[in-house]
């Protein structure tokens, strides 16, 4: 299970302020903290408040790389900002994200090729997020076809079937699970799958419980990666246990510790 640490995002107040003031400390604190918790990638999002997202993204990538060698997940709807980040990434980056819209796919997949980056593709288009699994899978197929045509390997394409908050769109949760299963059959080798996990529990009181349960349900349907709160220790334990129960990792008594130390 690939864990993409979500915490360095301008939507969080401390990061938003740090980005505005170009104060590296909160970013570096969370980079180290998430790495220690067992994150495999660090998500970097300038947030909506950054006045110059290109400049902010480049700066964020640089200061985070001062304290971690983990690969970064460059999270923005502004592709100039993502490109600025790609130019300074030392490790192979993950572009977060591109919807199934032709002009955007053309730019992002070309960029992925140029910088040897991985890509998250969203199963949405100009009409928004579809309601059912079938429409999600149809958009996923467009992402797969475009990635393939651009020469991006399926192992480097992460399809996100977009989970919505359960308290406002409960009917989406099972549709996303069905979509996950189908997406894994779209190509051989199959594309990777990812979810922005914390979205499922937006504004619910029992956020962590909902996140943990949905992670496990997703894993059983072929979920490979999540953008999530790596500091939720129980969530990491759930991910480790899911891998054991799906026979993806070989059991041993210390499997929880091993998962967090990334020696799996």
């Amino acid at each position: 299970m690939i864990i993409i640490g979500e915490r360095i995002n301008g939507m969080f107040k401390d990061i938003g302020q740090a980005v505005a003031a170009y104060d590296p400390k909160p970013l570096q604190h969370w980079a180290i903290q998430q790495e220690q918790s067992g994150a495999h990638y660090i998500d970097i999002n300038t947030g909506p408040t950054a006045d110059d997202r290109v400049k902010s993204m480049r700066w964020m990538v640089e200061v985070v790389q001062e304290v971690t060698a983990l690969p970064l997940c460059l999270d923005s709807t502004n592709y100039d900002a993502i490109e600025a980040g790609l130019q300074v990434c030392k490790q192979r980056a993950l572009i977060n994200s591109v919807p199934a819209e032709q002009e955007k796919m053309d730019r992002v997949f070309a960029m992925a090729r140029e910088y040897n980056a991985q890509v998250i593709g969203l199963t949405m288009d100009k009409k928004g997020v579809p309601k059912d699994a079938e429409s999600r899978v149809a958009l996923a197929l467009e992402l797969v076809a475009n990635a393939d045509a651009a020469g991006v390997a399926m192992e480097d394409l992460f399809i996100d079937p977009l989970i919505l908050p359960v308290n406002v769109a409960q009917d989406h949760a099972p549709e996303v699970l069905r979509a996950l299963t189908a997406i894994k059959t779209l190509a051989n080798p199959a594309p990777m799958t990812v979810l922005g996990l914390s979205n499922v529990s937006q504004k619910s009181p029992d956020r962590q419980l909902i996140n943990r349960c949905y992670l496990l349900m997703g894993m059983a349907c072929g979920l490979d990666a999540v953008i999530a709160d790596a500091s939720d220790e129980a969530l990491m334990d759930v991910a480790a246990t899911g891998r054991i129960l799906l026979n993806l990792d070989i059991y041993c008594d210390s499997y929880l510790k091993l998962f967090k130390s990334k020696k799996v």
Partner: peptide, 9 residues
């Protein structure tokens, strides 16, 4: 195999 892995750890 589980003990094999555990012993190495």
């Amino acid at each position: 195999i589980n003990i094999c892995k555990q012993l190495n750890i």
